[in-house]
């Protein structure tokens, strides 16, 4: 049984999710999880420059942003998303307290992933 507060189930609306992730297998995992939850994936995008373009131009409801893309920090993408007012979640292998300001209080999805955590975060960001 799942913990009481996080029962599995489909999300309320189908969301378009921009996925920024440079590791293929991890991207695959997220794509599957998102599909199971009824959402559509925009991407995945594995390069920082392409991700920035997508962040600025594509149409989507929420983004999952890997903190580290090929050795570079992905904060510029976060800036672009924040500027557009689009909600996003960081996906990270670093510990909980490592997000840089001004994003230190932003929601983070820890690797390895948990379905219910992803669901909870999306429910909070896109009610």
């Amino acid at each position: 049984m799942m913990p009481a507060s996080e029962q599995p189930g489909r999300g309320a609306t189908a969301l378009r999710v921009l996925l920024v992730e440079d590791e293929n297998l991890v991207a695959l995992l997220l794509e599957d999880m998102l599909a199971e939850l009824g959402h559509t994936v925009v991407g995945p995008v594995a390069r920082l420059d392409k991700a920035l373009e997508a962040a600025q131009r594509e149409a989507f409801d929420v983004a999952i942003l890997d903190v580290n893309i090929n050795g570079e920090a992905a904060y510029p993408i976060a800036d672009a998303l924040a500027a557009r007012g689009i909600p996003f979640v960081f996906s990270t292998g670093y510990g909980k307290t490592s997000l840089r300001a001004p994003y230190s209080d932003r929601p983070a999805l820890q690797k390895p992933f948990q379905r219910h955590e992803l669901q909870k975060l999306f429910a909070e960001l896109c009610p």
Binding site: E23, L25, V26, L28, L29, Y94, Q110, K111, P112, F113
Partner: peptide, 9 residues
């Protein structure tokens, strides 16, 4: 963690 996520995948 990335490796664990890969294994998970």
């Amino acid at each position: 963690k990335n490796i664990l996520a890969t294994v998970q995948s």
